[in-house]
Amino acid sequence: MALPPVVNTWYEDVRVGEEIPSISIGPLSHTMFLFIASSHHDWYPGHHDVEYAREQGLPDIFMNATWQHGLLQRLVCGWAGPNSIPRKIKYRMGRPVVRYDTVTGRGVVTGKRIENGEHLVDLDVWLDKQDAEKATTGWATVVLPSRGDTK
């Protein structure tokens, strides 16, 4: 597969209020849940054992927090480009992501600032499901390259 070009998102080009490109994944099969348990070394039964999850009072097996973070990082870094740093991602999980859900990540730029020489952009980020908006809500701060950087 041919390598894509390095495409930067420059701090100067970002507008407060702009929406970043959404991402989507799903429907999430049982196989996918098992793959995530294995790939995260996370064998908490609520993530792969339907009976156990329901005994805990949950509707079905649910994706873990690290997977949700990974999805939010994919959302932010896919937009911010390979020379960005996802400085902070903070999120709260409301409704669980369960089997057969389709999850869409979205984000909007809420602020820009320069601190300690770093060009920072703040975003609201969240995960929608097919039947629930903002099942997970979060905030991100990303360091972007500046056209004024010497490097």
Binding site: L3, P4, V6, I25, M32, F35, I36, S39, H40, T66, W67, H69, G70, L71, Q73, R74, C77, G78, P82, N83, P86, I89, P145, K151
Partner: peptide
């Protein structure tokens, strides 16, 4: 693979060499 992330920084040493990182890096997770 579990988050279906095509970001070439995670897949290609050669791509990473063309960025500020100088090579392949890992996502936080």
């Amino acid at each position: 693979e579990g988050i279906q992330d095509p970001n070439p920084l995670y897949w290609s040493e050669e791509f990473g060499r063309k960025t500020r990182w100088g090579g392949r890096i890992a996502p936080w997770g």
